[in-house]
């Protein structure tokens, strides 16, 4: 049978469109030139070395990591019970609540960032790191709710009732029966939330300040002063690690069902 040509071409173009920029960045990160340009004129690992030598990248990486983990855990701790309530129970105002809980994912990040700065940080005078943590928790929360909801919806409530009829309390049932069975949904929510936090610029832009920046903000700042391939090298490292984590989780748990 003759394969139709058009869909294959379209697929190829889509791949080029999606992956092209990444290939350019990856190739330019091995450049021997001192400014970012494509195609590079020679090969070197100099910029990878430089990434690790710049102290601000190291400190902001740790801030990003800590903020991301703390905000992700908090968002899950708040989001899992909310998701459970929304999936398992019906009550007045449920739809309104669902819309409200997803609003941080709909409202533009710049608006959230500015509002948090103006009406939260300025008013309560919390330390800048705390503000960053609260802001990130707020935007990760809808992802936690949505992804965990999806996996809860796939879990038969009769199984919970079976556990209750056998003597478990609702709470014990949740930890002994529900959690082990929505594990992949929880991991998916965790990874998605963490990556969202780690990559976030618009919120972090408003909630960082002297001495406290996240890695993406530090990269922006760096690019304003230098235009060497260090940023390419750093970007390549982040992209490769992201791909490895998502691939690993997908292999182990099939998380893409819930994203």
């Amino acid at each position: 049978m003759k394969q139709p040509r058009f869909p294959a071409v379209l697929f190829g173009l889509t791949l080029v469109f999606l992956l092209g920029p990444f290939v350019v960045i990856l190739l330019s990160s091995f450049s021997a030139d001192s400014i970012m340009r494509f195609p590079p004129s020679g090969f070197s690992l100099e910029w990878y070395q430089k990434v690790f030598n710049i102290r601000m990248f190291r400190t902001t990486f740790w801030i990003s990591l800590k903020t991301g983990l703390a905000a992700t855990f908090t968002a899950l701790a708040l989001g899992v019970p909310v998701a459970y309530a929304l999936v398992r129970y019906s009550f007045r105002g449920k739809t309104a609540l669902e819309v409200f809980f997803s609003s941080p994912a709909i409202v533009p990040g710049l608006v959230i960032g500015f509002s948090l700065l103006r009406f939260f940080i300025f008013v309560t005078k919390v330390p800048i790191g705390m503000g960053l943590y609260f802001g990130h928790t707020a935007i990760l929360f809808p992802y936690a709710v949505r992804v965990v909801s999806a996996s809860l919806r796939n879990f038969d409530p009769a199984v919970e009732e079976a556990a209750v009829s056998l003597g478990s309390t609702r709470l014990h049932t949740f930890f002994a029966v529900v959690v082990p069975n929505v594990r992949s949904g929880l991991v998916a929510a965790f990874i998605l939330a963490f990556i969202t936090s780690f990559n976030n610029v618009p919120i972090s832009l408003f909630l960082t300040g002297p001495g406290v920046a996240t890695l993406p903000i530090q990269m922006l700042v760096y690019m304003e002063y230098y235009f060497d391939p260090t940023i390419s090298a750093l970007s390549s490292i982040i992209i490769v690690f992201t791909i490895l984590i998502v691939q690993g989780a997908e292999r182990a748990l099939g998380i893409t069902n819930y994203l």
């Binding site: 038969d156 009769a158 199984v159 009732e161 079976a162 009829s165 003597g167 029966v177 069975n181």
Partner: peptide, 20 residues
Amino acid sequence: VPPNKRNIGLVFQNYALFPH
């Protein structure tokens, strides 16, 4: 009395076994 204190056995149409 809550269902976990009634000492009643329940069998469901879709089995409802603990998958894990």
